[in-house]
Structures are given as structure tokens and as C-alpha cells.
Design a binder for these strands. Structure first.
Lengths: 216, 216
DNA sequence: GTCTATATAGCGATAGAC
DNA sequence: GTCTATCGCTATATAGAC
């Protein structure tokens, strides 16, 4: 659409950017679906509608393209702190809402594929996994810790270590459905009622453990 | 050691079995360490001390060998219900012991590698993952459900859905350390004291939620 | 039944034309 | 800056000798 941004960058790049975007889009799709080894540079180039050398002109090698694609997919997948904007409901309702949002986030196809990619990433990409973890799950836990702290201050909960409680909450919500899904396990049942029961049970168990009316 | 089982099987196989065992051993090691795509049939043959064709004479193709190796590793990794043999201690001590055993099991290198293999197994090996899940985690949860039921009967705990409580317990124990380890995340701290604190917190939270002295 | 040598194919990365 | 054609390498699977 945009003709050309005049003379923005280097020696001259007419339609550079949209081709780069197409390549990244193709890379994201294929890497997520078939993994690192299962995706060839040919396939990426073909799907992007460009030649293989064009791919290599934008990205030095396969691992570089992989890293960039995963990074983009991560920030694309990251919610805009969607879960702490519940208001004016009972604490249980708020926790249920957070649980539903978190569960549907981590069990989405994109999240599952991302997890799989990172568990088997290109060679030893520990740095990438590290960054993903800090920017993703850890940030969510941190934000949820803030939520819990406000509830504790309001006398709705009684928690000594808020950080650890946040971790426990998310682990309970994920349950083993998430683990089964990661394994590609077939019996990962996703009956809506089943999931709702699971989430409600997790929230109730959490609230029961951290209810303010007990003298432990 | 055994010379030959006389004429047990087909046309005749002198030292067949020990070579087959060597191949499977090599396959288990290499697949677990480098994954499916990262392991070549050459490497397996070399490590097993046999020729590549000998490998193909015992296993029709790579995927078949992979399946067999993973299956063997699974039953090899499965504990002999090690965790319900605690006796004569406080309930908390028993749960702590179970938690430690379970945690060291699932965070062992072998378990982590197995999980990684199954999340990215050869092609669409959903059946294999299914069998693994039923024979592994699900069996453990079932056994632990029995443990919980006995405690409930003894008035030590108050649990409506024992099965779900068992799932929650194991999820709490795994925590996000397990998930971070699966991702190959570098900041997976394994300070002994840190882990003990995590396990104790999980057990306390569990007991607090299902303590018998409350009228919910 | 086992080994050395090879056929076949696919992938990552590059050289040269336009 | 982009494309067609190709090199170099590796891997799976197989043919023929002992």
C-alpha cells in the first residue's frame, strides 16, 4: 500500500519490508506447525511467495529466522494484561474469570505450539526460552501477585507468600490437561462442562486454603 | 551368557538377542539426548557396535525403532509404586516424603527427556503418548487416590473428589520448576533448600485446603 | 546373519544472470 | 534486489560379498 517510505534506510529497499513480513509470517506458521527440523527453507520461501535467496538476504541463516519468528509470535501471543480488569464481583467470580482467561490462553493452539517449539528449540536456545519465560508466564504471575496482594490488604485472603500463591494458582489452573495437551495426548478431553468443573474446583481449593477465617 | 535357547524361534538366530539389546540401548540413549531428528541410524549403529544393516534387520525403519526404544524407556522409568510405602509418621511427613519422591522422579533427566520426546515425537505418535500417560502419570495419580481415600476414611482429610485432589496435589508439587525445566530454561534453580521450601509450601497448602476441621 | 559400499533424495547455503 | 540453477553435505534405506 504505502508506495515507499521515501529514503528511510540504507542504499535502497523498495518492497523490502512487506516481503520480510511475508517471510516472517510464513516462518511463524510453518515452524509452529512442523517444528524446526520439520520446516525447510524452501517451504518457507514457497509459502511466502519469494525465492529462497530472498529469505537469506533478510535473515542470515535458519536459526536466525527461527529466533525472530518465535520472538514475534511470543509478543503477538502475550495478552495485554487482560486478566486484572475484572471488577465489582465476588472474589470467587473474579478468580473464576481470571482462571478461564488464563486457561484458554495456555491451552490455545498457538500457546501449545510455542511451548513445543521452546522445549525442542533450535539447538541450545536456552536464552530464547529464558526470555520467553520472563516475558510470558513470569510476567503474568507477577501481575497476579499484585492482584492477590490487594485482596490480602482488603482482608479477602490470608496469604503469607503471595508470590508462591500465585505460582500455585496457575499450576492448579493448568492442571494436567495442559500437560496432556503438550504431549499430544489423544484423551485430552475438552468438554466445556468438564473444563468449567475443573476450573471451579481449582478456584475453590485455592480459596479454601487461603481463606482468611482460620488461625493456622 | 545363555548360549542359545536351543531352537526357539525362526530359522536360527545365534547372538541375535544381545545385539538387539545393544541397539535398543544405544537408541534409548541417543534419542533421549538428541531427539528423533537429531539422531541418525548411523550414530545408533556405531554406538551399538554393529552395522547399520543389522539395525534394519531388527527394526523395519527408524520410526519403529523409536517407538520400541521409547516404550522400553517408559517401563524402565516407571517406579514400582514407590510412594505409598511410607509408614508410621504424621500425615504431613508422609505427604512430604511422597512429594519428594514424585518431584525427584519427574525432574530427573530421564523423565524430562522422555517428556520432550513425547511432545515432539516422530510424526503423529499420539497413540504412544496416550499409552505413556495412562501407564505413567495416570497410574501414579490412581495409586495416590487410594492413599488419599484411606486418609479420608481415617478422618485425617476431608475430600469430596479424591481423584481431582490427587491431580491437584501432583500439579502443585511439579510447580513451574518442572515446566521451566522442560523449556530448557536456564534460570531453573535447583537449590536444595529452595526445592524443599517449595515442596513444603505445596504440602501445607494442600493440607490446609483439605483439612477436616472446617464446615464448608 | 553380518559387514562394506552405494543408490536416492532432501536440505542448507551460494554463485551468477537479469 | 530478486530469481534460477547448483554445490556440498547428510541421512535413510538397500545391493552384493563373506
Amino acid at each position: 500500500m504505502n508506495p515507499i517510505p521515501a529514503k528511510a534506510c540504507g542504499p535502497g529497499r523498495p518492497k523490502d519490508l512487506e516481503k520480510r513480513a511475508a517471510i516472517l509470517e510464513a516462518a511463524k506458521d510453518l515452524f509452529l506447525e512442523h517444528g524446526f527440523d520439520g520446516t525447510s527453507m524452501d517451504a518457507i520461501a514457497t509459502r511466502a511467495g519469494v525465492s529462497k535467496l530472498t529469505v537469506y538476504s533478510h535473515f542470515t541463516d535458519k536459526e536466525c529466522l527461527f529466533t525472530e519468528a518465535v520472538r514475534e509470535k511470543c509478543i503477538e501471543q502475550m495478552p495485554t494484561a487482560l486478566f486484572d480488569v475484572d471488577v465489582s464481583g465476588s472474589l470467587r467470580d473474579q478468580l473464576i474469570a481470571i482462571a478461564q482467561a488464563f486457561f484458554s490462553l495456555v491451552t490455545s493452539d498457538a500457546s501449545i505450539s510455542l511451548h513445543r517449539l521452546l522445549t525442542t528449540g533450535a539447538g541450545g536456545s536456552t536464552k530464547l526460552a529464558q526470555k520467553f519465560w520472563e516475558a510470558g508466564p513470569q510476567a503474568l504471575q507477577c501481575a497476579f501477585s499484585g492482584f492477590l496482594e490487594r485482596e490480602v490488604a482488603a482482608g479477602q485472603l490470608q496469604i503469607a507468600d503471595v508470590r508462591r500463591a500465585a505460582e500455585q494458582f496457575f499450576c492448579l489452573i493448568k492442571g494436567d490437561l495442559h500437560a496432556r495437551q503438550l504431549c499430544g495426548c489423544a484423551n485430552a478431553s475438552f468438554d466445556k462442562a468438564e473444563v468449567d468443573a475443573h476450573l471451579a474446583a481449582a478456584v475453590d481449593m485455592f480459596m479454601c486454603a487461603y481463606a482468611p477465617l482460620r488461625q493456622a
